[in-house]
């Protein structure tokens, strides 16, 4: 399977990445070769193998339901470009 320029544009848009038109062909080749590797792996018979959800074969530790975090709004908002009344301000998303 190989990816064309339109696939690359779509993937970049979904990831909100700005890319140069001139780089698209190179990206398409690189991404396609990754898919090629996956295709090679696909030829291995894995009928009896349960798909792993994580590279490490261990299970999730669970946390006690306790509130231990305190309010650090000032620290967090010190690095935000814009805040007002305790809110983070962002460009309007709904017309």
């Amino acid at each position: 399977m190989s990816l064309g320029p339109d696939d690359v544009k779509k993937i970049a848009h979904l990831a909100r990445l700005g890319i140069n038109e001139s780089d698209i062909e190179g990206y398409a080749d690189s991404l396609s070769s990754i898919l090629g590797l996956v295709e090679d792996m696909n030829t291995v018979n894995t009928d009896d193998v349960l798909p792993m959800a994580h590279p490490q074969d261990v299970s999730q530790r669970l946390r006690v339901d306790e509130v231990t975090e305190s309010n650090q709004r000032e620290k967090f908002q010190a690095i935000a470009p814009l805040t007002e009344d305790g809110l983070y301000l962002v460009p309007q998303v709904i017309e």
């Binding site: 007002e84 305790g86 809110l87 983070y88 301000l89 962002v90 460009p91 309007q92 998303v93 709904i94």
Partner: peptide
Amino acid sequence: KSLHEDFHGMTGIDL
């Protein structure tokens, strides 16, 4: 939560 009231044409975010 997004608050779309007018913050000078911006949207306020409460997380």
